[in-house]
């Protein structure tokens, strides 16, 4: 009844639906200056944008599986396989660095050892973040390329490694160069596949840099072998 009495007196400027609730403050909105209305309107728009943005961010986070690739994906499969591949290269390079008498071969072996140790750390770190195991399950090598294999191309056998460790002097250098050259060339196809197909950009970038580095190192090792009168091994 209060409201109606107000309405009767001030009815021309005030619509009836407003004064039903705002009788205490009168027409604060309609009485407000234009700039204040503008500020409040901008605020309303901002709140709407914020709510929309937050909702979008939450939905976006839910639908970004590329940053946690699943087991069996190209990313996980490549990192697991290449971890095994790199570990053996590091093993052979460490042996050569410690036992060669040729300073140039020592430098080459150290370069391979240190580069691949760094790359192994990156690969293991990503696998750990994605809660995947650090290496391929036995007999499942290259399954991510559509053909599970008991081993990977270029890998040295236990007999190869024993022959390497039993050698000294130039025969050791030749063994090392032959095994490492075959190792590099055997891994190339996997690296190229991952460089082209991995879903995570950082994995593609790493695989690309492996291709660049190892292609160049393979050329160097081919020349070093030739200079020692030895031929490369056939691919296994």
């Amino acid at each position: 009844m209060t409201a109606s009495s107000v309405t009767s007196q001030v009815s021309p400027p005030e619509p009836p639906d407003v004064d039903d609730h705002d009788d205490d403050h009168g027409g604060w909105w309609s009485d407000s200056p234009g700039w204040a209305k503008a500020v409040v309107a901008v605020g309303a728009v901002l709140i709407l944008l914020l709510v929309g943005g937050l909702a979008g961010a939450v939905i976006g986070q839910r639908t970004a599986p590329t940053y946690a690739p699943a087991a069996g994906s190209v990313d996980v499969g490549f990192l697991q396989d290449m971890s095994v591949h790199h570990r053996q290269a590091i093993q052979m390079a460490v042996w050569e660095r410690s036992n060669t008498t040729d300073p140039a071969l020592r430098q080459l072996a150290f370069d391979i050892e240190s580069s691949q140790t760094q790359q192994l750390g990156m690969m293991q770190g990503w696998l750990q973040l994605w809660e995947q195991r650090g290496e391929t399950a036995p007999g499942q090598y290259m399954a991510w390329m559509g053909m599970p294999m008991p081993s990977m191309p270029g890998m040295a056998t236990e007999a190869d490694l024993q022959r390497l460790r039993a050698s000294t002097g130039q025969p050791l250098d030749v063994e090392f160069l032959q095994l490492m050259l075959r190792h590099h060339e055997g891994g190339l196809h996997m690296m190229e596949s991952a460089a082209a197909q991995a879903s995570v950009p950082a994995v593609r970038t790493l695989a690309t840099s492996m291709v660049t580095t190892q292609t160049a190192e393979s050329q160097t090792m081919t020349q070093l072998l030739a200079a020692r009168g030895a031929a490369p091994l056939p691919m296994n």
């Binding site: 160097t220 020349q223 200079a227």
Partner: peptide, 11 residues
């Protein structure tokens, strides 16, 4: 150039 010859042939 190149690593051939082994003297400067490191990576």
């Amino acid at each position: 150039t190149s690593g051939a010859g082994g003297m400067g042939g490191a990576g």
